[in-house]
Amino acid sequence: MIVTTPKPLDEVLDLIAPYSNILIVGCDGCTTPPRGLREAKTLSQLLELGGKLRNKEFAFEVTTTTKQCDVYLTASTLKPQMSRATAVLSLACGAGVQTIAGIFPEIPVFPAQNTHFIGTEEREGGTLEQRCAACGDCLLGETGGICPVTRCTKGLLNGPCGGSKEGKCEVDDEKDCAWNLIYERLEEQGKLVLLKVYRPARDYQKSGWRITT
């Protein structure tokens, strides 16, 4: 899922200050924690209260989308409400924000979230961690299901480097050394031979920018 955090409210208030009729659009898709109808409603309440303290009255409408990054679905969902809006505040990731901006180019669209990464959620500890960089050349099959592109601070394809200390990374000692994890995993699976495979530098073009279905 795509991990986001809410932008500070004063920043959002600054963004929307010149507008009055604002449509807040949630996303029920992969945005995590979920930024659906509840978050849209909560944000409208907080911004109304924040606006009052700045002597600014907003008129908010709230709605949500199944997947804000889906042009077809988002266009059909938002069209009826769009006529009343002078600006849109999106709770989706950057892709969602740009989707709305692309469908309705005449209306300014603002992000209410900062988008961080594609990650995994550990609900018990309440943590979200990056797991995928969308590099377009997945090598998880050779690394015991542990991604060195995202989890190795240096993004090394051939590791570990000399900075692996007691299983931790020299750059951040709270962070596990990804290559140490890979070693342990492959050892457990009896596949240490995979570590002998040399991987050439990544071809960044493989990440791509457009795919035709």
Binding site: P6, P8, L9, L46, L49, G50, L53
Partner: peptide, 8 residues
Amino acid sequence: ERLSQIGL
């Protein structure tokens, strides 16, 4: 925490 961002 969010209320603190608007002074409430």
